[in-house]
């Protein structure tokens, strides 16, 4: 682009648009789950190093979000939910988004390696790679299992947080990984049931599109059920306790109840009330993850007061 073109351009990219490109909502979830992974770890982290690490993890997540938007430009243009993103609206070019994504990702991994350790930086790099290359570029447009396998990308943050603190990996963060991994399908499919037509238009082979609503409802139910054993294992691990167990029981009962309501419905019933139960499940799933992880954080904070009073049966 020559100088005249730059100067005569009427639109200046605003900071808000750049932030939108970094998917701030996904970013906040990543910050939250990696923060919990960090504080429940048995080794303390210097507060400044913890803060800096979270910032770099967030930048890495933002970078992968920008790369996802760069690659999915054509899909985003079609879907109502994503039509107002910066690339489809033309406020930021796809090339700029790619450049920003690459720089953010590289910078984040490099800085996390310096701030924390190579293991944490390595997992962050792998997470970005998994989300951008494996999920966005490969799985998303090819298979109805896209979000099942791709969900792993969103499940890595607690592992990164744990690695920042301990420079290692243990069973506890792996259980948290599994928890988010198995939580992703019911969370996304509940949304996919609501927005099925859009995925059809965008030619994304979501389960709702390729196998239909009834199969999706069954899958949502079984995945919701699979969260129970993982939640119980977390409760009886070294990071668990009575609070976690209580939350696991309550949240899973709520989740399964909601999922079974979604399971027994037919498309006709759902259309009639504009997919209210499916929307409800989607909202509940967000609360499920948030409350459970917050509970783990509180539990670890309370540990020093509760441990002398309660003997909690830890399985491992």
């Amino acid at each position: 682009m020559n100088e005249t073109a730059v100067i005569s351009k009427t639109h200046e990219v605003r900071i808000g648009e750049v932030i939108a490109l970094l998917k701030p909502r996904v970013m906040s979830l990543v910050i939250f789950t990696s923060f919990i992974g960090m504080i429940i770890a048995p080794v303390g982290v210097h507060p400044i190093l913890a803060f800096a690490s979270l910032i770099f993890i967030a930048i890495g997540a933002g970078g992968s979000g920008a790369l996802n938007m760069w690659w999915d430009e054509d899909i985003d243009r079609v879907m109502k939910r994503t039509r107002s993103r910066p690339i489809p609206t033309g406020t930021i070019s796809a090339d700029d988004a790619r450049l920003l994504g690459l720089w953010c990702s590289g910078f984040a991994v490099f800085m996390l390696a310096l701030t924390a350790n190579f293991l944490a930086a390595g997992i962050l790099a792998f997470t970005i790679f998994f989300y951008v290359v494996i999920y966005t570029m490969y799985l998303k447009r090819r298979t109805s299992q896209n979000i099942v396998i791709g969900g792993a990308a969103g499940a890595f943050p607690p592992l990164i947080g744990w690695a920042v603190a301990t420079n290692g990996i243990a069973l506890e963060p792996i259980l948290l990984f599994l928890l988010i991994f198995l939580w992703t399908p019911p969370h996304f499919w509940a949304l996919a049931l609501v927005t099925k037509e859009e995925y059809t238009l965008a030619k994304v082979p979501m389960l709702t599109v390729t196998r239909g609503e009834q199969v999706t409802r069954k899958n949502i139910f079984w995945y919701s059920l699979s969260l129970v054993p993982i939640g119980l294992l977390v409760s009886f691990s070294s990071v668990g306790g009575p609070l976690t167990l209580g939350l696991v029981v309550v949240l899973n009962v709520m989740m399964i109840l909601k999922a079974s309501q979604v399971l027994v419905r037919t498309k006709e019933v759902s259309v009639r009330d504009n997919y209210s139960k499916e929307r409800g499940l989607f909202k509940l799933s967000i609360w499920y993850l948030f409350v459970l992880f917050a509970g783990l954080g509180v539990e670890s904070g309370l540990a020093k007061y509760l441990d002398p009073i309660i003997t909690w049966p830890e399985l491992f």
Binding site: H46, P47, I48, L49, F51, A52, I55, L114, T115
Partner: peptide
């Protein structure tokens, strides 16, 4: 931030 990291 980098200064803070250094101190920490």
């Amino acid at each position: 931030l980098v200064f803070g990291i250094t101190i920490a």
